[in-house]
Design a protein around this nucleic acid. Sequence first.
RNA 1: GGGCUCGUAGCUCAGCAGGUUAGAGCGCACGCCUGAUAAGCGUGAGGUCGGUAGUUCGAAUCUACCCGGGCCCA
Length: 954
Amino acid sequence: MPEKKSYRNTLNLPKTKFSMKANLVQREPQQRNLWSKEDIYGKIRERQSGSEFYILHDGPPYANGDIHMGHVINKVLKDFVMKYKTMCGYDAPYVPGWDCHGLPIESKVVAELGREVRQMNKLEIRRKCAKYANKYVKLQSKQFQELGIFGDFDNPYLTFQPGYEAGILEVFAELVDKGLVHKQLKPIHWSVGCETALAEAELEYKDITSPSIFVNFLVSEKSIEKLVEKGLLGEEAARNSKVSFMIWTTTPWTLAANLAVAVHPGLEYKVISYEQNGSRFVSIIAAERLEAVIGAGNLEEAKYTVSEKSVTGAELEGLRYKHPFVEEKPTDEDAYMVICATYITTEDGTGLVHIAPGHGIEDYVSGQQNGLGIYSPVNDDGCYDDTVPAWLKGKNVLEVDSQINAHLRETGALFAEDSIVHSYPHCWRSKMPVIFRTTEQWFIRVDKEMPGTGKSLRDSALEQVKDIKWIPEWGQKRITGMLESRPDWCISRQRSWGLPIPVFVNSEGQALLSKTSVLAVAARIVKKGSDSWFTDTPEELLGADFELPAGFSFDDLEKEENIFDVWFESGCSWYNTAYKKGWPVPVDLYLEGSDQHRGWFQLSLLPALGSIGKAPYKSVLTHGFTVDEKGMKQSKSLGNYVNAQDEVSKYGADILRLWVSSVNYQEDMRCNDELIGKSQDAYRKIRNTIRYLLGNLNDFNPKEDAVDYEQMLEIDKWALYHLGKLISGVLESYEHFAFHRVFSLVYNFCTVEMSNVYMDVLKDRLYCDGQDSESRRSGQTAMNRIVDSLVRLLAPILVHTAEEAWLQMEYKSEDVGSVHLASMPEADESIDYKPREENWEKIMEMRDKVLVVLEGLRQDKKIASNQEASVTIYSNDEEMKVLLDDFGLAEFAALCIVSEVKLQKGAEETTIVAEKSKHQKCQRCWNYWPSVGRNSDYPDLCQRCVKVVEQLQE
RNA sequence: GGGCUCGUAGCUCAGCAGGUUAGAGCGCACGCCUGAUAAGCGUGAGGUCGGUAGUUCGAAUCUACCCGGGCCCA
């Protein structure tokens, strides 16, 4: 036996610089530096200039802290869209923005300053806040860019830029002009200790012990008659008893501001008769609460009776009662009646709720709905004012509960008294319990008719929402529900770090707020920023030539010190970043987390409708949130938090991007380090597919070497057919923002069609056929198209890797220096492959059967590689015979990577038999072909290889 | 407590205008190759579709309720 010669160097083996190992963490930053040096984003803008716009308007993240997974998902999804749309030929600029004003920054700054802050004025605090915001804008900007996101990061929009601030005022001026802005009382959290309003973020919840009292409010005469009419109590009882509505409260001090009693319209109410302290009582209570109330009052059995008859809360509506200790009417509005409220539960209390619109949010809302006034007889320091009964005047509400209880006990109104431990908000600074107190705030009215339209903001929004495309569709339901139930928008805050609401007041308390006054201030702020509100005089702010309305003069003008709700600021971003630039509004897309239905989507829609009368967006896409591997919310305290920065520096941006693309963002996304790490498997497969294709194209110049489609081998046509299917599937998925379908289509293509079948089958031809043979060139022609398309399809997702591959391609479909300047591939519709496709399905089924048989041989140690096998198919299936004849047995053998396939006709049923080939092995191509040994110069080669080797030696 | 929403193999996704033994890829197990090599190939085992009750000749697909999540409110 002659010594085995190695023919390795006579083969056409793959060669490429596109390495197997990605080294993303090292390579990506280099790639980005290159992009930055070449101003790739600028080049894209230049190239697309003049094309149709596609505007995705960026929602501004809050400029605070490192970016987290939520940011990653949001920004990466946006980048998928932008890069895809760009490659589709649109002019799709991306202007990132940041939300820079507001309490989180101010709180942080104040906390960092500590005691120092007491000596500082608003201006100084604002400067610190600005510095803080700038710092985080810079940090987050860097972190976003490290994800491979393209955009105008040198010119972002920041909500505290003077130009942006002026824009907010310009929108505001329109709302003012339409009469949508007004001042109104509203209860807010108030710190008695600090004598200031508190925001939600400044509350600390602590358990405290509060009184728990049941109080009888006497029903008025006429209303008693109505109760008799309804059969709830007899006439005798009505005459001889104290007929009452019984309420329950844990804040007795608010009784002084009571204006109503609320019942649930759907609940059943009954009366209980009993004797207490020598008086006979008949109290109305929710049926479900009777037992608990009887327990609270320690009523002995047989000492009370409960009515058979019950009425619904709705039947009690409008009945009247007498306040237990307030004599005079506290407001101009009607009071002391029963109203309905659906938020009432039967978990505690009596099913009747004491309503003080001046001292509770729900009370306030109920009050508004029922035309009650707002009565808040408490001063800044937490003491009652002069409108309360004499015995309460000047008393601190936090210390007055026991006195009120005593008073109620003396007058016989107190049915029961106990204490309760519950969670209650406290001021973070003074640590004292917080109270609800009404203050004057500025509102945007959602139910006021807008001039010339006959519609309110709410009507208009509800109408517009139907014409907007919501992705997913249920977004429409969600925002509709929110719009239907939302109250007027409170836009004022009593804070330092924000844009001042430009309202002036004269000494008579009249406010100066008009379109012209707001625009005048806006003009000043463009030049001097919003700090000027704190430094400049009203005359300077408005301009000396500003025409003041009658009753106002510059000597008698004070500036209010309210700032805007930051949501109003971000809600005007469409104006500043699109409308003002002349870009088409509504813009094409807003894309944020689904929490923004309440937030940014809604609060951008309202200012836009109120100012330009149009929605700011044509479509809205929302994504879900990351949860841990069990589907639970992630938080630092639970220890299931995924640090986005760690993930990027561990795996690289492309892995994170691939992970984002792989999950269905419309739902919760399970996420932890392991799950993200698994994306590496898919990445490697995709990368290796590209590497193999590139490696086998290193000697292929499509201009000279390409083979015409008609001349190509069948399996190469098959590969192109699947490429076409891939392209159309991927483009359709991108079009629907279904990135996880893009991912699975591409990944499956790489794994199944390419790696498992095509690339494996192709090896013999690529490696062993003559370098310039038509058969080899046929395969390369297909591969060239495949890799060229694949890389472009992947470019929006694997931004770095696709670029790396693109730069390795010597000949590409488009002569552009970056894949991100290229266009999306198009599926070749001219080829109708359908008829062949059916045949292929049968061929592949047969192939599978062959492979199973071969696996059996392998298990029996008869063969090792498939090439050692000779296969015989016994078949009586005429169709199959035709197919095999049509397809070619040699081609079928190649498809199974066996050396030989024989067909035996006339068998009973189709059976496949395989055995070890009786032929010799070709030492070059490793096939066991009959032609091996026929050439005396090369006794160890097959004829094909002899030819190739001889050619090489010429 | 309310509004919206989700729950298919270990993982990521298909299927869901109701209809044959619920699919794919990965992972896993076993085996092969050593000319894509920190690669590649093959074979195989895994779900009864969150639960229950209905509608129906027939349900992962429709309805109700329940359980468990998520977002936003209260």
